[in-house]
Design a protein around this nucleic acid. Structure first.
Lengths: 152, 152
DNA sequence: CTTGAAAAGAACTGCCT
DNA sequence: AGGCAGTTCTTTTCAAG
């Protein structure tokens, strides 16, 4: 897959990455392009699927969900429970905000949001431990996190 | 912390969560509110900091970064290297897209994006292993992931 | 909180270099 | 490909009920 993206496109991606609220005109000004030119490139990037839909992020703490825990899960009986089944039932737990299928010590990593530790214990015992095929489970409580621009 | 958020606000949050292309008019229609009413609530939520800025997500695979790895890191000499120093130098690695300070088996979890496994090996050996105070390191290669609406 | 309307701005279109 | 000028649409803001 040869690069369909040139240096100007990269500059645009770098801009919108840190400022998703920017209009085509503003993006153009930032990279030295006119409004229509920037708009055309943005549409091209979106149509190509490189730029995927926007996502809003909430302050979960302000909404009463002060506890975020990462669960590493190793399936006990691989083969007995299909990965698809496991993913479907795990995704049905309301407190699960993210399901990551990984390779390594664990088979899955879950990001879980709860109101407090007592609430998390309820989710862990009544929901997660009740999942089919769950073997080893390990928890990491989130203290703080930072998102970074990344390469490009 | 009493709830400054009522049921209508929750309905709005639920709507914009799955439809980040927020437009006051459309949100209002979805929750049975007029356009100005919905707009005022959205601004209130944003001013309160509950609704944080939009974020665009890229298809990193299309941009030539096909490998995502999670690194669990245990600091070896706690106290010798301050957490602030570690976080600062870790955030300076371009391939690090996320830094999570956690409690449990690891002290930090890093989300790393690389072009391929060879590129990831370079990052791991020349960048991560060279960090001050790094003890045990564990890697999980991402196969697939899914974001979910979460509670509310 | 509603409706209605006006002002501002962003999205999109042709045409031209 | 990029820029200019113009049109259309949505968002935003302000009336008044």
């Amino acid at each position: 897959m040869t690069d369909l993206i040139d240096a100007t496109d990269r500059a645009i991606l770098r801009v919108v990455q840190t400022n998703a609220t920017l209009s085509a005109g503003a993006v153009g000004r930032a990279v030295g392009l006119s409004q229509p030119a920037a708009w055309r490139r943005l549409r091209r990037l979106r149509d190509a699927g490189i730029l995927r839909g926007r996502e809003l992020s909430f302050d979960m703490e302000m909404l009463g969900f002060g506890v975020t825990v990462f669960l590493g899960i190793k399936l006990a009986t691989k083969g007995r429970v299909s990965l698809e089944d496991f993913e479907r039932v795990v995704a049905a737990i309301p407190e699960v905000r993210r399901v990551e299928h990984v390779l390594g010590r664990y088979d899955y990593r879950l990001r879980i949001t709860a109101r407090d530790l007592a609430d998390f214990e309820r989710v862990l015992r009544r929901r997660v431990m009740a999942l089919p095929g769950v073997g080893e489970v390990e928890a990491n409580v989130l203290l703080s996190e930072e998102r970074l621009p990344g390469p490009l």
